[in-house]
Design a protein around this nucleic acid. Structure first.
Lengths: 183, 183
DNA sequence: GTCTATACGTGGATAGAC
DNA sequence: GTCTATCCACGTATAGAC
């Protein structure tokens, strides 16, 4: 039933998904949904509960050393999104673009849960860390949107490792390379 | 009145925006909107009518020669989005992520109107052009989303030229650099 | 515990008065 | 041409029967 909700939110966003449709997809009565979750909002937060914990993935990302950080970040992003994260992630992204609460939710998740962890392992001034982190996000968000939402070819059907090779260097440069820092 | 529609669609996406709200914002009667535009769909396409023609911007992008292509693309993107394109563009992006028709609309606009023009000026095999174009799009889409939708700092309030310096090299590499080409 | 019935609001669209 | 009044469909949520 949560799976049905995730699927619906992923396909149609928060506003577009209806409790009726979710209930039908799950083969139950719409009233049951309210009975279990109370409201649509609560159902949503239950549905997008992160199926992966960023903290657990961190060691693997850092394992290759400083020079492989860029590729590892892209590799991990694709592994997670091609796998368990995709429905919940899509739901979150779709809703983030739809309304401002969702945008704030996603922004804070990205900044505090993902960015700070990766960037925090480099020795950087807070200011520089913020800038480099934002640049990385700009590329990663673009990959997710192009591959999973807009489905632009050949990005959408590329093998993960091909994208790692193509995009990893960009992330690497943003993290440790020579970048004029915007202010 | 079109301006009010653009603003509403930009803020709330296609589904979120209501004809009533648009009419109120424009200081007119909701029925008038139907009278002029017939339906919400038609109002939408009228509202997102591209305020800038990609073809006209092309010479300026190409002016600096092959080595400045990356920076010029980013510069033009920001100029257009910081200016006249922003409301219509936001409306399109918001709706593209919301429903699949919108996604197809945006994808086709990006691929045929923007990508092919820029990439077409390099001498590349169709296959390579497609790949490099998609990589460029992945970065540009990410910038737009981070800066204008998610409003991630410091991207959101950076000066355009700072972003040009930071992100231009990425686009340059995707266009003319050494990239392992995904398939 | 599960479903039927329904209240309540909202939004797109239309008919018709002036 | 512009607005009032209204129709109709849909969606959330709740109350209450079984």
């Amino acid at each position: 039933m949560l799976a049905a909700a995730r699927g619906a939110f992923a396909e149609r966003g928060f506003d577009g998904a209806t409790i009726r449709a979710i209930a039908t997809a799950a083969g139950v009565d719409p009233a049951l949904v309210h009975h279990y979750f109370g409201s649509k909002d609560q159902l949503f937060v239950a549905a997008i509960e992160a199926p992966v914990d960023p903290a657990e993935l961190l060691p693997e990302v850092l394992a290759g050393g400083r020079e492989q950080l860029g590729e590892n970040v892209v590799r991990m992003l694709l592994r997670v999104w091609d796998g368990p994260m995709q429905p919940a992630g899509l739901a979150l992204v779709r809703s983030a673009v739809g309304n401002d609460r969702g945008a704030r939710l996603l922004r804070e998740f990205l900044v505090t849960q993902v960015l700070r962890r990766v960037v925090g392992t480099l020795e950087l001034s807070p200011r520089e860390a913020e800038v480099r982190g934002a640049l990385v996000v700009s590329q990663l968000v673009g990959v997710v949107l192009s591959r999973y939402v807009l489905r632009i070819e050949p990005l959408a059907s590329s093998e993960p490792e091909e994208l790692v090779a193509a995009i990893g260097p960009t992330v690497q440069r943003y993290l440790t390379g020579d970048v004029e820092l915007p202010g």
